[in-house]
């Protein structure tokens, strides 16, 4: 009975997500839109596949359209030169740059961090990312920053290598939400949180099922154990 419970339960979860998607975009979906239009020009998602995006409730057609808009390496052409093709669903989303050297060249020698586990490896997680995105400010006149860095109050040294990535109205949300900077920062961090913990919802739901099952079994065994041991206690004392 437990055996069919799991797949049925997962299917139920999946439909639950899809239904939500039909009503309004989730923060993750809006965050994906920001990622797609803003972040992904510099930041990679080396471990995430296009197909994984169904996890935030994107439709297969939308994911296919996104994949088709991205080029991935595809061996060499007849002249031996590297060639590309539109991405498939099973491809990794990967980097906007062909290699690390070009990524560094385009970013003052720094490598924009990969997003796959950023919300996990960054101390403070997704909330920290949101804070960083919201902590850009005009530089005080008397402050001298190192070249290629930008004033950001989220850091002890008050600067960061990344230029301010977001500004109000930068993207036009499909669901009509006003794309203010705080809104976008919040959505992007929700998306990155999902990227770093893609199974957290499933994990919680299965966990509740497992705990409920064990709780029932514990009660049954406690009754059984008490009944069995009653005999010994009776003669012992």
């Amino acid at each position: 009975m437990k055996r069919i419970f799991f797949p049925a339960f997962l299917a139920f979860l999946a439909t639950g997500i899809c239904k939500n998607a039909a009503l309004a975009d989730t923060p993750q979906q809006r965050g994906f839109q920001v990622y797609r239009q803003v972040c992904s020009t510099c930041h990679s998602l080396d471990q995430v596949r296009f197909a994984d995006l169904s996890g935030i409730g994107l439709s297969v057609a939308d994911i296919k359209a996104y994949a088709a808009s991205r080029q991935v390496p595809d061996g060499v052409d007849d002249d031996g030169d590297p060639k590309t093709r539109p991405a498939h669903l099973s491809d990794l989303i990967g980097s906007p740059y062909p290699n690390e050297a070009m990524a560094r060249m385009a970013n003052h020698g720094d490598l924009p961090p990969d997003f796959s586990r950023l919300a996990m490896t960054e101390e403070g997680g997704a909330a920290r990312i949101e804070t960083i995105l919201r902590s850009y400010a005009p530089k005080p006149a008397d402050l001298v920053l190192p070249p290629g860095s930008y004033y950001n109050t989220a850091f002890a040294q008050n600067h960061i290598g990344m230029p301010p990535p977001l500004h109000d109205g930068q993207v036009k949300y499909v669901d009509g939400t006003a794309a203010t900077l705080p809104q976008m920062a919040q959505d992007v961090s929700a998306y990155l949180d999902w990227v770093a913990h893609p199974h957290s919802m499933e994990r919680t739901h299965i966990g509740l099922g497992v705990l409920a099952y064990l709780a029932v079994l514990t009660v049954l065994l406690a009754i059984m154990k008490r009944r069995v041991w009653k005999r010994v206690k009776g003669t012992g004392s």
């Binding site: 064990l214 079994l217 514990t218 065994l221 406690a222 059984m224 154990k225 069995v228 041991w229």
Partner: peptide
């Protein structure tokens, strides 16, 4: 039974 209960 005792191990079983503990195990749960």
């Amino acid at each position: 039974t005792k191990d079983g209960l503990g195990l749960c």
